[in-house]
Design a protein around this nucleic acid. Structure first.
Length: 800
DNA sequence: CAGCGAATAT
DNA sequence: CATATTCGCT
């Protein structure tokens, strides 16, 4: 960052977020490392804080005692010889009741959680950046407020004139409703007078301009977390506030933020309604799935839901992914959770076999979900999940990865019934709350013929949202003691796989296409589609100890496009696909991925400079819900697998036949604007309607090679190569093209030939995201396109 | 001046 | 509590 930028940032932030009284905030910085100490102190001073630095915790306490009442905040290193940060924090809390901010290079969730649970107000993963500490004043203020120390004492900074009372006359504006205006003005003047009187009476202090609460990423993240926990419909300021448990934050703050947030959601919804492209993306995006009830409750989406899968075809392809493994009688309890997350796809090249093969390697797919843009340091702080920006453009751009929510989740009350793998979709209400579509329609699933299922041991219980993935007929076998984390909505509708994970409080919880691990305290530790392993490492061991000799589930993430381990599910989501997996060396694996079926409305009009989305299907009279799901859970040293997949499939209710999508019209000259899935899906639909054979995918390679992807759209995972992860731009969808998909093609071909449906690509070397296997390559010529905030946010945010 | 986010009023 | 309005700022 150059100096000018820095200055400008400083100015901005100084004006924007940093009250002038920060120079009255005294911070004690403790770090045994002189360099860090100096740097952090200097940074704080840059922000105008008053800083005292000490080299060890003993001195810190001594300083605090000697200058009691002076300090407002303690910033300490975690690892120090004499006394670690935890202990120091405890002392500081007990003796001085001061807020403590912890710094450490240790980005382990366990440590972070421990810190926060221990009372640390903020955890900064080193290296500390200026932005990390810019707003620490909030903690000081919050703490003071909590202690009911008058906030004025730190607010009465020089030069900060209190809001002067305006003249009542200037208050009234020109025209309408004069009487009302006048009343208002009078009332206001009265109020102002009253306030002044009070001020005069109470203290001469100038006044109370409350420091503005800055909804930082982390704060907003907590906000989202709260909403997610509570459920949007029930999320009222008070409850959100309670859940957030941020000292000093007021209900009003939350209410205000909530209001803005709702407006935002509304805007997204509206935009979605107006734009098929967007709406489909939003609604169908994995981001849009699995989240309880957001925004789109009130959006008319039915017209967008007309496309559906051809049950037969889908059944074929999906059913083939069912790979019951030989069970040994152990049980996993699956607790269904909230989601209609059916958008899951088969793991490409997933090695599955009913026969044990302990030596095989599992693809280490990881779901992604992190925007490449999420490169700020916030990402290193606790909740890795991306969040909605606070409105600054840059932050908005950081959102690309949200595991986005679930519009309409509530509407889909599906129950997977199962017995031999049939899934039922019941009570699905899609769209408007008063617009029930497809109620009680059944989802059809076509079990893999060749592999009869054993009796299942999954137990599903209802989740608060009534989306159940049932598997009463599914088999599962496990060579280890039942787990107890909960896998919710793994990619598909495997919701809440309730597993006992001894010695761990971790739970896998999620509501999205991927998986997510959250701590019992609600912190997201690892998630997919919107989160990433802490620290953005490729391999992260979370020390989830699973009994039976399979400790250390390591979560492996395959970074896409950059080596920061920042996943780009934003892209994937935009491409309509996402996937994830977790696996351990011991063979524990959970993988999930999803594909979303978009309507074929995203074709670029060839020959038209204007990008124009040509709706190809007429709005349906009725509606269809079509999603497919699959989740694989492989447990044990390679000898146990659970995999479940299914297609939810309502019937096409529309009697308006899709008009046209002519594959022949799509050539390499015609760029694919939307998702491949869209096209595939639409073709499937068309074919179904026309009794055609399955269409080849509607695209060709740019180089003229006629190789095409198999129509098994549900079995793709895309890789996106991102040229510049740090750029504040979004990828240009137009610049993607399908390069190759040999593995899937082969798989498809073999399936067509009636061969083994679980094809292992001989070329597959274990790196799932091998661009040689499947990829959508980036066209460096047109790497980015402008993308307006709304679009981005729609993608990014829909979630929480 | 528009527009935002936050605060504040209704 | 939801919603409208105002404020301070860019």
């Amino acid at each position: 960052m150059d100096a000018a930028t820095e200055r400008s940032e400083f100015r901005q932030s100084s004006a924007n977020t940093k009250p002038s009284f920060v120079d009255m905030i005294n911070i004690l910085v403790v770090d045994d490392d002189a360099t860090t100490l100096a740097i952090v102190s200097a940074m704080l001073k840059t922000w105008s804080y008053q800083v005292v630095s000490v080299r060890n915790p003993i001195d810190a306490l001594a300083t605090l005692r000697a200058r009691k009442g002076i300090f407002d905040l303690v910033v300490t290193d975690l690892h120090m010889p004499q006394m670690n940060g935890f202990e120091l924090q405890k002392h500081v809390h007990e003796e001085f009741k001061l807020p403590v901010i912890m710094m450490s290079a240790d980005d382990k969730e366990s440590v972070i959680l421990k810190s926060l649970e221990g009372g640390v107000v903020y955890y900064i993963v080193k290296p500390v950046s200026k932005d990390d500490i810019k707003n620490v004043w909030q903690y000081a203020v919050a703490a003071k407020k909590g202690k009911s120390v008058t906030i004025e004492e730190i607010e009465s900074a020089p030069g900060e004139a209190p809001g002067e009372v305006e003249d009542g006359s200037s208050e009234t504006s020109s025209d309408t409703d004069e009487e009302k205006q006048e009343k208002k003005a009078v009332a206001k003047v009265k109020k102002e007078r009253k306030r002044h009187r009070e001020d005069d009476n109470e203290e001469r202090m100038v006044a109370p301009k409350k420091p503005k609460v800055v909804w930082t990423n982390s704060l907003h993240n907590q906000f989202l977390l709260a909403i997610r926990h509570i459920g949007l419909d029930k999320a009222v300021p008070k409850r959100i506030l309670e859940f957030m448990n941020v000292p000093g934050l007021t209900r009003e703050n939350v209410a205000s933020h909530l209001q803005k947030y709702r407006i935002f959601l509304k805007r997204v919804a509206e935009k979605a309604r107006l734009s098929k492209c967007l709406s489909e993306r939003v609604f169908r995006s994995s981001f849009a799935l699995g989240h309880p009830a957001l925004v789109f409750n009130n959006v008319q989406r039915d017209q967008y839901y007309s496309q559906l899968l051809n049950p037969q075809q889908m059944g074929t392809s999906i059913a083939s992914t069912f790979q019951p493994s030989a069970g040994n009688g152990n049980t996993l309890a699956l607790t269904a959770a909230a989601s209609n997350n059916l958008g899951s796809i088969q793991f490409p090249n997933y090695h599955q076999s009913s026969s044990s093969n302990s030596s095989r390697s599992f693809p280490q797919l990881i779901g992604s979900g992190q925007s490449r843009l999420l490169s700020n340091n916030q990402a290193n702080i606790l909740c890795q999940q991306p969040m909605l920006g606070n409105g600054n453009g840059d932050q908005l751009l950081c959102q690309a990865n949200r595991r986005t929510a679930a519009f309409g989740l509530q509407q889909l009350m599906n129950t997977f019934g199962n017995g031999g793998m049939s899934f039922g979709l019941m009570n699905n209400n899609i769209g408007l709350t008063n617009n029930n579509i497809g109620t009680n329609s059944l989802m059809q699933v076509h079990p893999q013929q060749s592999q009869p299922r054993q009796n299942g041991v999954f137990t599903f219980t209802n989740n608060p949202f009534s989306y159940n993935f049932a598997t009463s007929g599914n088999q599962i076998s496990s060579s280890y003691t039942p787990l107890s984390s909960s896998f919710e909505n793994m990619g598909s509708n495997v919701n809440n796989v309730n597993q006992q994970v001894p010695n761990s409080s971790h739970q896998l919880v999620s509501n999205f296409a991927g998986s997510q691990i959250m701590s019992s305290s609600g912190r997201e530790l690892v998630g997919l589609m919107g989160s990433q392993p802490a620290g953005m490492l490729n391999n992260i061991t979370n020390n989830i100890n699973i009994g039976g000799g399979y400790p250390n589930v390591s979560l492996t993430g395959a970074p896409i496009g950059n080596n920061d381990g920042i996943f780009n599910s934003g892209y994937m989501a935009q491409l309509g696909a996402s996937s994830s997996s977790m696996s351990s060396s011991a063979g524990f694996e959970i993988s999930a991925s999803s594909a979303y079926q978009f309507p074929p409305s995203l074709l670029k009009n060839n020959g038209d400079d204007q990008q124009q989305n040509v709706p190809v299907l007429p709005p349906p009279a009725g509606n269809v819900n079509d999603q497919c799901g699959l989740a694989n859970l492989n447990v044990g040293g390679g000898n146990v697998e659970i995999s479940v997949s299914g297609v939810m499939d309502n019937t096409i209710i529309t009697d308006a036949p899709p008009t046209l999508i002519n594959n022949n019209n799509i050539s390499h000259e015609q760029e694919l604007v939307g998702d491949i899935d869209d096209l595939m899906l639409s073709n499937l639909l068309m074919d179904q309607q026309n009794n055609y054979e399955p269409s080849p995918p509607p695209f060709q390679q740019q180089d003229g090679d006629q190789d095409q992807l198999p129509p098994d759209f549900a079995s793709f995972v895309y890789q996106v190569e991102v040229p510049d992860p740090s750029a504040d731009q979004v990828p240009n969808l137009d610049s993607y093209h399908v390069e190759d998909n040999a593995a899937n093609e082969q798989s498809w071909n073999q399936q067509q030939e009636g061969g083994d449906q679980q094809v292992v690509n001989p070329e597959f070397d274990g790196n799932v995201f091998d661009s040689e296997d499947y990829s959508i390559l980036f066209d460096p010529e047109h790497p980015f396109q402008d993308c307006d905030d709304d679009f981005l946010n729609a993608i990014l945010d829909a979630d929480m």
